[in-house]
Nucleic acid binder design. Structure first.
Length: 475
RNA sequence: GGGGUCGUGGGGUAGCUUGGUCUAUCCUGUCGGCUUUGGGAGCCGGUGACUCGAGUUCGAAUCUCGACGACCCCA
């Protein structure tokens, strides 16, 4: 359906959706903190259930670490601190007493988890360790905050941390993480590019960082996932050593990777339209809504039929809701469309007479009659269809927003004009990267990961390009 | 990092320039009633607001300062 308002007035569209679809209450009186409403929280939980499933399948174990980190431990990794110092909330008092050692509200959990890893890791047999947790983190943002996108309390931060005996194993883990995230975003129908972040944008304390970016309707990219190879940086600081077969001590190699509630913003942006939310069936809190259409004076048992249909679909494992409110049907149609329910079933006197149900897809508005006998099968089919079509449409739009550009002027102009992502040739040098950023005025996402061979020369130094670089206006 | 705009019921707004019948307008929502129901029904009745603090003044939604919050632009 139409996506005009969404593209031209994205900010407004997004905040309207949060309210109209009961996703979030945005009026909490502290900057950058927001309240998850029941419908939004269900959506969040279904989204992260997919993530849990993928992580468990690949041998990750869920843990839960404390939220407070003592200052002295937090400050051990110098580079890490430099990256986060300005954004940390500190707990300085306990009741009326000033604390001797301040406590950091975790902005991320490396410094909380790794000292404990040091206690757990004794021998090569203890490795690898692959754990994850889904927690809240705090970052003191000074920029304009935005629900789900730029927060002072990120309420939903999935972070995984691994430790390995060998460097190659850490490299392999990075690959695994990338694949997990690809499957995650694919399941949600959220399109992405993967890049290796430039040196100045690498996670504080990492050897290198990979990142997933998607595109908001206003043409800016949104980072929705990161994967870091920490090598031995943290291991050396926190003393993560194991005894190898020969009896020698070695530092471990580590990786970490994270995804936050930004992914939910990405789902909303990828599939929504001017009417409102449009949710992929896998994560929709309600997958099918039934709207009965009664007529006074007609001797037709619309309500009974609607209830029977509801029970039938619920028994088939679908999340189904029967809307029995005393409102006119049209009102209910708009109500559920705004909330993104993927499929609506109408049951009226005509349907009852013909032993059928009228089905309407949220994404296309397409309407069709389904005979009662094949209802279960057909509804599941339709939902599968919605899932596939949403994913396809989102990727199509995304691909159309990626342009090739050979020189800085074109890069600058293309992004200025329509946003999106520009792919350009790059020698890979840091100085040229910085010059590209400087001269175009836009941000370097980084070197395209697993990208195809670039055509042409680096626009800065004119040497033969080694890689493709992706450039965009970022959130 | 720098600059700008703004804050009135649950949401959207009028009023502010020139302080005073502002007992604060309209739309929407919401609650009760009647009537209705294949795309946001109608009528009647009710509900509900000047962000907070300090100041100027006989008098502040309106003027001044501050805090908090929201939004936009540039780097």
């Amino acid at each position: 359906m139409k996506r005009e308002r969404l593209q031209h007035n994205f900010s407004e569209w997004f905040s309207d959706i949060l309210r109209n679809a009961d996703i979030m209450e945005t009026r909490y009186p502290v900057k950058g903190l927001f309240v998850w409403l029941p419908h939004g929280l269900k959506l969040r939980n279904f989204v992260f259930a997919i993530m849990r499933g993928l992580l468990e399948q690949s041998g990750h174990q869920e843990v839960l670490f404390p939220q407070l980190i003592p200052e002295n431990i937090f400050r051990k990794e110098a580079e890490h601190i430099r990256g986060f110092e300005g954004q940390v909330y500190w707990v300085t008092h306990g009741g009326r007493d000033k604390l001797d050692v301040k406590l950091a509200l975790r902005p991320t959990s490396e410094t909380s988890i790794y000292p404990i890893f040091a206690l757990w890791i004794r021998s090569h047999a203890d490795l690898p360790i692959k754990i994850y947790q889904i927690v809240n983190i705090f970052r003191y943002e000074t920029k304009m905050t935005k629900p789900m996108i730029r927060l002072r309390e990120v309420t939903t931060f999935k972070e995984a941390h691994t430790a390995h005996a060998k460097s190659e194993e850490a490299e392999a883990q990075v690959r695994e993480a990338v694949n997990i995230y690809k499957r995650f975003f694919d399941e949600l129908g959220v399109p992405y590019v993967v890049t290796k972040r430039p040196p100045w944008d690498t996670f504080a304390g990492a050897k290198y960082s990979l990142a997933f970016d998607t595109l908001a309707p206003d043409g800016r990219t949104l980072q929705i996932g990161t994967v870091h190879n920490l090598e031995q940086n943290f291991a050396r600081v926190y003393g993560l050593k194991y005894e190898a077969l020969g009896g020698k001590q070695h530092y471990v190699y580590q990786t970490c990777y994270g995804v936050s509630e930004r992914v939910i913003a990405a789902v909303i942006m990828a599939h929504g339209d001017d009417v409102g939310l449009c949710l992929p069936p896998h994560v929709a809190p309600i997958q099918v809504v039934i709207v009965p259409i009664p007529f006074k004076g007609r001797e037709v048992p619309v309500e009974q039929v609607a209830t029977a249909i509801k029970n039938e679909l619920a028994a088939a494992g679908l999340r189904v809701h029967l809307d029995e409110r005393d409102l006119r049907p049209g009102n209910k149609f708009y109500y559920w469309e705004r909330r993104g329910v993927p499929l609506r079933l109408e049951v009226g006197p005509e349907d009852v007479k013909k032993e059928q149900v009228t089905a309407v897809r949220r994404d296309t508005g397409e309407k069709q009659a389904i005979p009662r006998g094949v209802l279960k099968t057909k509804v599941k089919q339709l939902l599968e269809g919605v899932t596939g079509d949403l994913r396809e449409r989102a990727w199509k739009l995304f691909h159309e927003s990626i342009k090739e550009a050979p020189d800085t002027e074109t890069i600058k102009r293309v992004i200025q004009k329509r946003g999106g992502i520009v792919r350009a040739p790059w020698c890979g040098g840091k100085a040229c990267g910085e010059a590209l950023k400087e001269q175009t005025g836009w941000d370097l996402l980084g070197e395209e990961f697993d990208g195809r061979a670039p055509a042409g020369d680096c626009p800065i130094c004119s040497k033969r390009a080694k890689v493709s670089v992706l450039i965009a206006r970022t959130y």
